[in-house]
Amino acid sequence: MLRINNVSKSFGTKEVLKDLSLTVNEGSIFGLVGVNGAGKSTLLRCISGIYRCDAGNVEFNGIDTYADESIRKDIFFVNDDPYYSLASNIRTLKEFYSSYYDIDEETYQKTLKLFGLDENKQLNSFSKGMKRQALLLFALSIKPKLLLLDEAFDGLDPIVRYNLKKSLYDFIEENEATIIISSHNLKELEDICDSYGILENGKVETYGDLLESKQNINKYQLAFRKDIDESVFDKFDLLYKSKEGSVYSLVIKGDKETTVKELKKLKPLILDTLAVNFEELFIYEHEGGNR
């Protein structure tokens, strides 16, 4: 289990993470989302023990990831722009990682084939997406208990994205591992994540089970015979509201059945309920948070 305990991190005068606390359960694929500059990468670097937290700490299976380097054997961080030294190739990279981690040769060969990478080709001649694949190859072959993927799907073509998602499913099924993925591609996250957290203003205040959250936020379309006093919507936890002609579109947080029951009391001519996707969930939560 990953526990982030009251973590704060500043860069100069800019406070990026503010007393952030979060727990991610074992076996979970956690989608970390937030706007640009929200601190997603900083949080992942704090989790992986690269950055020292100004306050608080991160524990994985009860061990501080910064203070005790031994736990980092179970953690692997794939950053958004991997570093490769001059003239290095996948073979030399394997030499590097095999010095500290146990590489599962079977998975290595299987994933190498799946990604279609040339072991002997210089990594600097690879495209950005291929460079990321090279690191993902080791992320999967090392079989860490905690896998951190920063901007995981950026720069990958649809086939590789599909293969990666499939590999991650297999990986989590076989290893009982925890994966934290940060990405702006919420559609991809929605496909694989079972839980999520929205990083905003240095904190993760909105988090939980993705399916539950999606069920808890719904879009309602209502039409009325004549104009109504909009203050009737005040009693709902309204995340979004718009009006086109006599049709209102509302995004309301709360139990679907209860909300429908309450809305029916307003006697609309039409009442339709639509499910929101993860992207809408993020947008509505973000806008709701900023209101």
């Binding site: 031994s70 692997f76 981690y101």
Partner: peptide, 21 residues
């Protein structure tokens, strides 16, 4: 060199080796 390279920092400081080592 890795100490001064933003990308290399991620690689070297995330491996299971203490900073002292």
């Amino acid at each position: 060199h890795y100490v001064h390279d933003k990308k290399a920092v991620d690689t070297f400081f995330s491996i299971p080796v203490s900073r002292k080592a």
